[in-house]
Design a binder for these strands. Structure first.
Lengths: 192, 192
DNA sequence: ATTATTATTTATCAAATGTAAAAGGATAGG
DNA sequence: CCTATCCTTTTACATTTGATAAATAATAAT
């Protein structure tokens, strides 16, 4: 059972780049399955990000507070690599946390030993380089969306591209994710 | 003279990670110096991004059009790696172009041969992994700024963090960079 | 089931931002 | 030096969005 989840994760990661067998074996050593219940924090705010999570089933969100308001930076569904980039790559504490929006099954990989593996397994470094490149692309596209689209356009875009999120996450989180207030989102949904 | 610019570039790149000497030698082979005059496109809109530019001196911007309006996605000063991420990492044509805001001296590195070098020089792959991680962090931070800060807050933030940009780039480009109209920016600058 | 809690919608008003057009300023070329 | 062009500010007005509070709906806990 646990084996299965980790195998699925390795398969998923292999869609980014096919690392060689010995490298994947070493990687498997670092993989651990875990679960978080809906509403619970997988990682609280204030910690340094030293773990790479792969969401296997469920829904997570990265969030933080601005002026006491809870803001969802991103939603991460099944088959997503979940990290707080600014912290993982800089070694600084993150002002962001990871919380379960649904009961979630994940695989965790401790980052320091993973990065150490890179020295002996360049194919692993390449794999994760491509994983992070993909995340980078997503972030750039989201930036564009926030930079010059109206609130309504952003909502329609989400409806087109990820209609399931609308069903799975509470609207208050979706509102902040889209960079608007709950009230604004409600207005837009009321068609006008 | 040309040698000098390329040496400076290698030095700058080495601040991300110290690749070994043979790797850097191979990298130097791929470096070419170039210049673009103010107002000219270094890369026009519509091309696939296959070149990595390092801005040595001057100011560039990445831009695109939305509904016929020129939008500056980012400014890139001296000591910046300049690529259109969504294109370079996906191989798809970019809707974005790179334009010189000031007369600019740059070094270009052709991406396909660079990526090929990675196979023989893992330390180069690491170097560029770290380069792109740094860019990723910048983008995530910018996302946060656009997601829940007011127009005025975004302007103040730019004033704090990159006051030189205010001097070097026309306000119309700064306005779109900050995700607002020229009129709005003018209002904010008029203090109220 | 009943109550308490949380989420969502609605309403009202104020503030921020966009649109359009005009008026100054600055700059470059002849 | 003068004109033409581009950049920036200003004005007036329309729209969007935010803030606050109250009403309603949904959910969880007992």
């Amino acid at each position: 059972m646990k084996k299965n989840v980790i195998e699925k994760t390795i398969e998923y990661l292999s869609t980014f780049y096919k690392a060689d067998a010995t490298a994947l074996e070493a990687l498997t050593t670092l993989c651990f399955e875990g679960k978080v219940a809906k509403g619970k924090d997988l990682q609280p705010i204030g910690h340094t990000c030293r773990t790479i999570y792969i969401n296997v089933e469920g829904l997570l969100r990265i969030y933080y507070f601005k002026d006491g308001i809870d803001i969802t930076e991103s939603f991460e569904k099944e088959n997503s690599v979940v990290v707080r980039v600014e912290s993982l790559f800089s070694g600084r504490a993150s002002r962001k946390g990871i919380q379960a929006v649904e009961n979630t099954t994940f695989v965790s990989i401790s980052a320091p030993p993973l990065f150490a593996l890179f020295d002996h397994h360049p194919s692993l470094e390449r794999l994760f380089r491509k994983v992070f490149e993909a995340g980078y692309i997503k972030t750039v596209n989201r930036l564009e969306s926030l930079q010059f689209h109206t609130a309504e356009e952003r909502y329609r875009q989400l409806m087109d591209e990820q209609p399931d999120i609308l069903q799975r996450a509470p609207l208050k989180h979706i509102a902040s994710y889209l960079g608007m207030t709950q009230v604004s989102l409600s207005r837009i949904r009321a068609h006008r």
